[in-house]
Design a protein around this nucleic acid. Structure first.
Lengths: 194, 194
DNA sequence: TCCTCAAGTCATCGATCGGTGACTTACCTG
DNA sequence: CAGGTAAGTCACCGATCGATGACTTGAGGA
């Protein structure tokens, strides 16, 4: 990712590399902890180029997070397998691109600005909660129970990666699956085989 | 909280006011988003005084968070009431001193530095998880189930205050208690009246 | 080959940050 | 009332930040 004197001049490729490095930096160090010079230095390019391409630092941030949203692939398949799949994706998948943390958890680090909060909420609601809502039945408080289950998955991810609580950090996916099933049954009122 | 020309020169009182305003700033804007000049301006004092009292910005941060830890009162009483009390304290109590958010959730905003992560982990483990562990029985994975329940409470707090998910934001304490009971029963294997 | 236009660079600005040391002011004591 | 001491202030430093505009360089077409 360092400057290579003989590389070609390719606007789109350079732009993509800037976005990639920006995603990693913003996720690992947060918005304030990342400077435009850092990102440009990772790509091996002059910092002024970042402003030519993205207008401002917040523009770079928005574009980087917008492209990251496409990278999150929501699982499909039988609804009974959704909790296990979401747990795997939120907690156990190796998000090397985001310094080992899930993008959502990493984004919370930069949630000081209001637009970041809106983006996280939209991604959570339209993405994960929308998938999870297929699990809930009934009309009374379907959405609430869905969000409660999503809160659990998010809390597990945060305690594991951001806080580093001992038992959850050591736990394997197999250690969590039985509890995943029992909590899913308690919230959704039906058996969820995992 | 502005400068009052006729106020007395009281080192301890000024120091306490600095810590109070620092806690609010750090919680609301994060470590990087808070400047020493901001905190000093809130108290109505010269920024240089902050360095005279706390040595550095990180010293101010450490002292502010150390004093905040004492402010967290862990509930006691019958173990059966612990989940409801913790839920109230983590989610529904009005933490006006910390811009409406629970200190733990606010601290995650400043978790870019490593010592912040250690402090949050220590506070979670020695505090909340220690209290919750009285709920778990058996020896197989007592600690894991305790952390799983703590993860849920933390996730609820984050979805409510930091993400702003719709149903959880609107939910009252009474809306959550039945689900709190069922999940506690699922994880701890015994009835928890709430 | 040479010209053109876009990709990329360079120099620099103004603001703000954490931090330092000399200075001034107010309170307490004798 | 006088003077010492601690609380609080002032001026300033070096570094870094986001951002701007003029400049240079390289690749492709006529």
């Amino acid at each position: 990712m360092t400057k290579q004197p003989g590389r070609k001049r390719d606007r789109e490729a350079t732009r993509a590399r800037l976005l990639e490095c920006a995603r990693l930096r913003f996720a690992r160090d947060g918005y304030d902890g990342t400077s435009v010079r850092d990102v440009a230095g990772d790509v091996g390019v002059d910092p002024a180029l970042v402003f030519r391409y993205f207008g401002s630092k917040s523009g770079l941030f928005s574009d980087a997070m917008a492209t990251s949203q496409e990278a999150v692939v929501l699982p499909d398949g039988p609804v009974e397998e959704l909790p296990a799949k979401l747990l795997h994706q939120l907690v156990f998948e190796d998000w090397a691109e985001y310094a080992g943390e899930h993008p959502l958890i990493a984004m919370l680090r930069s949630a000081s600005h209001e637009d970041m909060r809106d983006r996280v909420r939209q991604q959570v609601c339209d993405g994960y909660l929308g998938v999870l809502s297929e699990l809930a039945e009934g009309n009374d408080d379907k959405d609430l129970r869905t969000e409660l289950f999503g809160a659990w998955l998010l809390g597990i991810g945060i305690l594991r990666t951001a806080v580093g609580t001992p038992s959850l950090t050591k736990a394997t996916e197999a250690d969590l699956t039985p509890h995943l099933a029992s909590v899913a049954k308690a919230l959704f009122g039906r058996d969820i085989p995992v």
